[in-house]
């Protein structure tokens, strides 16, 4: 089944990097958002069963997106991909319900590993 995948980052360059790093042959429908507000709208519209989420963004950051997903119990599995590598940032996003935290610059093998470890590829 095609997975609705949402890539959220304020940088189009970063979104491109993430999309390029996706496993070949993975059946996804990719949507993109450049801030948290757009991301939440797309998740509510069913475009983000799996979300690859940046943290540092204008308008609404990734922490706030995770809070909203948790508060409204939205059906989204979130993997954070961020340049904010403070251990406290990782602890916070995990507490807010993120599945995993991946540091930038993005290593595609690490992304594949995380997707595979959590059984997301086989959905």
């Amino acid at each position: 089944m095609t997975v609705p995948l949402l890539v959220v980052d304020d940088s189009s360059f970063a979104r491109k990097q993430v999309i390029r790093a996706l496993p070949k042959g993975w059946d996804v429908e990719v949507s993109q958002a450049s801030n948290g507000e757009q991301a939440l709208e797309l998740i509510k519209a069913g475009k983000g069963d799996v979300v690859l989420l940046d943290l540092t963004m204008p308008v609404m950051d990734g922490f706030a997106v995770l809070e909203e997903i948790k508060a409204r119990d939205l059906p989204a599995v979130v993997i954070v991909i961020s340049g904010d590598i403070q251990p406290e940032a990782e602890a916070r996003v995990m507490k807010l319900g993120a599945l995993a935290f991946i540091k930038k610059p993005l290593d595609s093998e690490q992304l594949h590993q995380v997707l595979s470890d959590f059984g997301i590829l086989s959905v």
């Binding site: 940088s11 540092t56 340049g83 930038k104």
Partner: peptide, 10 residues
């Protein structure tokens, strides 16, 4: 901006 983002994170 994105390269800087990664650098400032460190």
């Amino acid at each position: 901006q994105e390269l800087s983002n990664v650098a400032v994170g460190r």
